[in-house]
Design a protein around this nucleic acid. Structure first.
Length: 607
RNA sequence: CGGGGUGUAGCUCAGCUUGGUAGAGCGUUUGGUUCGGGACCAAAAGGUCGCAGGUUCAAAUCCUGUCACCCCGACCA
C-alpha cells in the first residue's frame, strides 16, 4: 500500500478522551475514531489488524471442527421471553420496537437464536456433537463504556455454541475449545493465562477465562506460580485459617468514637490495626430468607436461589418497602475486601448483591452506617468470613452512633455466626491447590469458555432423539472471544514510548518501506519501487511510505503505527549496494545486500 | 444510576474570577530554503465559543435549563 494514497492523519498529541495506552495509540495511529460513547469506527489500518485477528480465530475454529454461521444482530423479543432473559437481563439489553410496535433486542449474545436454530435443525443424536460459531457485532449498553475498544458498547465478538447428547461429549467439546483458544492466543503472541472463572449471568457449570496479562487490566486474577493455580479473584477461594481462634483475654468495652466511620478512622480512634477490626456490611436479603429463624438451613437454600432473580430493587423513598426488605450482615476483617460474587451465592442473600440503603440500615439497627457491628443485630442473618471468625478480642461497631466496641469475642459476647468465604484473596494467601502463596495479577479478559448445560436448551425445548428413540434435551457449551478487545490487549502488551509494536501475525503490514529523499533521487526511487514490487510478489505485505516527507516524520509515523520490520532505502546505502533493516524492537540498524531483500525479510518474519 | 469534571479552530489548550476587538502551539494550504529522527522563513484559510432561553446598552465570560463527552464506584468479550 502506498502511504501517499492514505488520507488518515496520525496525531502528535494525545486526544484528551483517551486514558489507557492502547486507546491513546489507536487514536494517534489512526486505527479507530470515536463516533459516540463506547461506539467506534475502524479505519483501514485498524481494520487490517482486526481482519488478521479474525483470520487466526477462523482458522483455529475451523480446525477444531466448528461451523461458521451468521446470526441476526436484531432478534425478536419472543425468544428472549422464552428463555426468561427478557425480564432478567438488565438495562444492558438494548430493546427496540419496529414500526408495528413489535419488540426486538439488539443482540448482546446469541444463545437464544442459536438454540432456536438448533431445535429446528437438530433432530437426531447422529447430528451431534456440533459447534456453530460466528464473528459478529454485539451491543451491550454498558453503564460505563471505557478504555476505547477495550470496553465498548458495540464490539465484535466471536461466539460459538456447541450441542451435545451427554456430559462426556460436552466436556470433550469444551476441552477442544480450550485447546483451540490456547492455540489462537499463542499465534497472536499474547502473554495470557487460562483462569478458573465465575459463570456469572450466563449461567452454567465449568468456566474458564483467557486473561491477557496487563497492568491496565480490569480483572484481578489470583496466580500461584508454585502449583500453576490461576483463577479470577471473583472465584478464588480464601482458605480458612489453619490456626484455631485464641481464647478471649480482654473484657468487652464500649468506646466513644465520634465521627469514626471508616476502618482507618476507627483504628486511629481506638488505637488498633485494621486486622484487629471487623467491618459489618449490610446487604439486601431475599424474601425466602426473611421467613424467620433457621432460614439459612440447607432446606431453604434452594428456595432462596429460586427466587433470587425476582428480588425487588425498590427506590429509597419507599420506607415501607425498605422496612419490609430482609437484611443480611456480612462480617469481614478490617483489612479484607468483600467478594460480591461469593456473597451473592449465599442462601438468603439477594442476587445480584445490593447494599442496604442508609434508611434500611438505620431502621434495622438503630444506628447510621459506620457504627454497625454484629453484636445485638436482631432479626438479621449474620455471615462472618473465616478470617473474621478467627479473631479474638476484636473491634467492631456498637450499633449506636459514635460508638464502637473493643474486646469483642464470638461465643462469649455474641452468638457464633454462620461461617462463609466472603472475601477476595490477597497476595500471600495460600493457594487453594496447595502449592505456595498466591499473587494477584491484572488481566484483560479476551476469551471465556463455558459448559452451559441445559439452561437454554431446556427453556427453548431443544431436544433430539437418542439411540433408544427417547427425546433428550441437548447439553450446550458456549465460547466467546472479544475480537476488538484483542487488538487493544495486544497493544497494552506491545508498545513503547514511541508507539505500537505489533506482533507480526496481527500487524497491519509485515514491512514498512521507507525511502529517504525519494523525490530528489531517481536512484532511490527506482530501487524502492522495485523492492515494493518484489516483496509484494513474494507475498509480503508492504506499506510503502512514498510521501514527500522528511526522514524524521516517516520514522516517527512508522514507529507509531508499529509495523515490526523497517526497510530503509537511501542514497548513502545504495552507494555501497546495501539496504538498511531494523526491527521495531531493535536499538540499531543493520546493512544487507540489496539483491537479497526478499530472502532477508522472509527470514525475519515471524508469522 | 450515584459522585466528580469538561464542552472555545481538525488536535492539545489559554481566555471566564472582575462582561466590551476570539487567542497560542500543533495540523492544513501556498511560495521559498531544507532533507538520516516529528525542519526553517513568509503568507493564508479555518470558530454562530455544545445547544436553548434569560439578565444586560453589551455575554465565550453572569443566571436557568438542556444535550454530549470524560473520570471514580456495581456488570462483561
Amino acid at each position: 500500500m502506498l502511504l501517499s494514497q492514505y488520507p488518515i492523519n496520525t496525531l502528535k498529541e494525545t486526544p484528551s478522551e483517551a486514558e489507557v495506552v492502547s486507546h491513546q495509540l489507536m487514536l494517534r495511529a489512526g486505527l479507530i475514531r470515536r463516533v459516540a460513547a463506547g461506539i467506534y469506527a475502524w479505519l483501514p489500518f485498524g481494520l487490517r489488524t482486526l481482519r488478521k485477528i479474525e483470520t487466526i480465530i477462523r482458522e483455529e475454529m475451523d480446525r477444531a471442527g466448528a461451523l461458521e454461521v451468521l446470526l441476526p444482530a436484531i432478534q425478536p423479543a419472543e425468544l428472549w421471553q422464552e428463555s426468561g432473559r427478557w425480564g432478567e437481563y438488565g438495562p444492558e439489553l438494548q430493546r427496540l420496537k419496529d414500526r408495528h410496535e413489535r419488540d426486538f433486542v439488539v443482540g448482546p449474545t446469541h444463545e437464544e437464536v442459536i438454540t432456536d436454530i438448533a431445535r429446528r435443525e437438530l433432530r437426531s443424536y447422529r447430528q451431534l456433537p456440533v459447534n456453530f460459531y460466528q464473528i459478529q457485532l454485539k451491543f451491550r449498553d454498558e453503564v460505563r463504556p471505557r478504555f476505547g475498544v477495550m470496553r465498548a458498547r458495540e464490539f465484535i465478538m466471536k461466539d460459538a455454541y456447541s450441542f451435545h447428547l451427554d456430559a462426556a461429549s460436552l466436556a470433550a467439546g469444551y476441552d477442544a475449545m480450550r485447546v483451540a483458544y490456547t492455540k489462537m492466543f499463542q499465534r497472536m503472541r499474547l502473554d495470557f493465562r487460562v483462569v478458573q472463572a465465575d459463570t456469572g449471568a450466563i449461567g452454567g457449570n465449568a468456566s474458564e477465562e483467557f486473561q491477557v496479562l496487563a497492568s491496565s487490566g480490569e480483572d484481578a486474577i489470583a496466580v500461584s506460580d508454585a502449583d500453576g493455580y490461576a483463577a479470577n479473584v471473583e472465584l478464588a477461594p480464601a482458605l480458612p485459617p489453619t490456626t484455631p481462634r485464641p481464647a478471649p483475654r480482654e473484657p468487652l468495652e464500649r468506646i466513644a468514637t465520634p465521627g469514626a466511620r471508616t476502618i482507618e478512622q476507627v483504628c486511629a480512634a481506638v488505637g488498633v490495626t485494621p486486622e484487629r477490626c471487623v467491618k459489618t456490611l449490610i446487604v439486601a436479603g431475599t424474601a425466602a430468607g426473611a421467613g424467620g429463624a433457621g432460614a439459612t438451613g440447607p432446606a431453604r437454600a434452594a428456595d432462596a436461589a429460586g427466587t433470587a432473580g425476582a428480588t425487588d430493587t425498590a427506590g429509597a423513598a419507599d420506607i415501607a418497602s425498605a422496612r419490609a426488605t430482609p437484611l443480611v450482615a456480612l462480617v469481614l476483617r478490617g483489612d479484607h475486601e468483600l467478594n460480591a460474587v461469593k456473597a451473592q451465592k449465599l442462601p438468603g442473600v439477594a442476587n445480584p448483591l445490593r447494599f442496604a440503603l442508609p434508611a434500611e440500615i438505620e431502621a434495622a439497627t438503630g444506628s447510621p452506617p459506620g457504627f454497625i457491628g454484629p453484636r445485638g443485630l436482631a432479626g438479621v442473618t449474620i455471615y462472618a468470613d473465616h478470617a473474621a471468625l478467627a479473631l479474638a478480642d476484636f473491634v467492631c461497631g456498637a450499633n449506636e452512633r459514635d460508638a464502637h466496641l473493643r474486646g469483642v469475642n464470638w461465643g462469649r459476647d455474641l452468638p457464633e455466626p454462620l461461617a462463609a468465604d466472603l472475601r477476595n484473596v490477597i497476595s500471600g494467601d495460600p493457594s487453594p491447590a496447595g502449592g505456595g502463596p498466591l499473587r494477584i495479577a491484572r488481566g484483560i479478559e479476551v476469551g471465556h469458555i463455558f459448559q452451559l448445560g441445559r439452561k437454554y436448551s431446556e427453556a427453548l425445548k431443544a431436544t433430539v432423539l437418542d439411540e433408544a428413540g427417547n427425546s433428550v434435551t441437548m447439553l450446550m457449551g458456549c465460547y466467546g472471544i472479544g475480537v476488538t478487545r484483542i487488538a487493544a490487549a495486544a497493544i497494552e502488551q506491545n508498545h513503547d514510548e514511541r508507539g505500537i509494536i505489533w506482533p507480526d501475525p496481527i500487524a497491519p503490514f509485515h514491512v514498512v518501506l521507507v525511502p529517504l529523499n525519494l523525490q530528489k533521487s531517481p536512484q532511490v526511487r527506482a530501487v524502492a519501487d522495485a523492492l515494493y514490487q518484489e516483496l509484494q510478489a513474494a507475498g509480503i505485505e508492504v506499506l510503502y511510505d512514498d510521501r514527500d516527507e522528511r526522514p524524521g516524520v516517516k520514522f516517527a509515523d512508522a514507529e507509531l503505527l508499529g509495523v515490526g520490520h523497517r526497510l530503509v532505502v537511501s542514497e548513502r546505502g545504495l552507494a555501497a549496494g546495501a539496504l538498511e533493516y531494523r526491527h521495531r524492537r531493535a536499538g540499531a540498524s543493520e546493512q544487507f545486500p540489496r539483491a537479497a531483500a526478499v530472502e532477508f525479510i522472509r527470514a525475519r518474519l515471524q508469522l
